[in-house]
């Protein structure tokens, strides 16, 4: 049961906004629709579908139990992928450059956003979608930068999906010609499978992790378009081989772009900023 409104939407994702304690929106698809907003009107409500409507009057014809095979040839992730493409089309039409940030917990995704956004926001509008199982802690940090942000709490979920992003975007005041950063749930496994409609996937690792991480979690590094090695200010204190890590990552994905930086000290941020500005102006 939802502990905020008392409804019975077990385990589903919930959207939250920093500083608005009574605001929350449940993310669900049409078949079991239960979306409501306490802070605004119910413009997302869709008609309920009732199981009982599937009544095909079987009683009229008696046939023996026959079995037959029906071809589907359907991608398991088709529903997510179709919705991701809808998101992508929307972003393209409004010239919104969308990055999906992926990493294990604690590699510095939120800190990187906190440091990157002020460098860009004078020239480009920025908005953020934060994904975590619980709390609005990350969204609160982004909110302090005065950019539009929405928190998706996935509950028991281990990744963001295209539906959550689709819903979150409807609650965000996105501007044309802007940057949207999606910070995925900290997890190097599951989010690799779910297209959100982003332009590029950015994987972040920090030097406090192992330099064999790209080999241990190859799906994520295979799917990523660029890799940011964070916390390089700690290199003197840890046993981390930057060249080896990069080589490992390139073995999994030879198209991977690479940045070394420290979000904390600002070292290396300039070339990352330059890359982003170039993409945003070309975009």
């Amino acid at each position: 049961m939802c502990d905020t409104c008392g409804c019975s939407s077990d385990g589903g994702a919930v959207l939250r906004k920093p500083g608005e304690n009574d605001y929350h929106v449940h993310v669900s698809d049409g078949a079991h629709e239960h979306t409501h907003t306490h802070a605004s009107d119910e413009h997302h409500a869709k008609p309920h579908l009732h199981e009982g409507q599937h009544d095909h009057a079987h009683g009229n014809h008696h046939h023996e139990g026959t079995s037959r095979k029906v071809l589907l040839e359907q991608d398991v992730l088709q529903k997510n992928n179709l919705l991701a493409e809808r998101n992508r089309g929307y972003f393209e039409a409004r010239n919104i450059f969308v990055l999906n940030f992926l990493s294990s917990p604690g590699s510095g995704k939120t800190t990187l956003l906190e440091k990157t956004i002020p460098l860009l926001q004078k020239r480009f509008p920025v908005a953020v979608i934060e994904g975590d199982q619980q709390t609005t802690n990350d969204a609160d940090r982004i909110h302090a930068l005065r950019v539009p942000v929405i928190q998706v709490n996935t509950g028991s979920g281990c990744h963001l999906d295209a539906l959550m992003v689709n819903r979150a975007v409807k609650e965000l005041d996105l501007q044309d010609d802007s940057l949207l950063c999606i910070e995925n749930v900290g997890n190097l496994v599951c989010p690799a499978l779910f297209d959100l409609g982003e332009a590029l996937k950015v994987v972040i690792i920090s030097v406090t992790e192992g330099d064999d991480k790209p080999l241990k979690y190859p799906n994520m590094f295979h799917e990523a378009d660029l890799c940011i090695l964070n916390k390089i200010d700690l290199l003197p204190y840890v046993d981390f081989d930057v060249a080896k890590c990069r080589e490992n990552a390139m073995r999994v994905n030879h198209h991977l772009e690479w940045f070394n930086l420290s979000a904390k000290t600002g070292e290396g941020l300039a070339s990352w900023q330059e890359w982003l500005e170039k993409r945003l102006t070309q975009h």
């Binding site: 009683g59 046939h63 139990g65 037959r68 095979k69 071809l71 040839e73 359907q74 398991v76 992730l77």
Partner: peptide, 14 residues
């Protein structure tokens, strides 16, 4: 690959 290839259904009379 990650596909649902086919399903086998039973058309049971009532």
């Amino acid at each position: 690959e990650f596909l649902i290839q086919s399903i086998t259904i039973e058309e049971e009379g009532e």
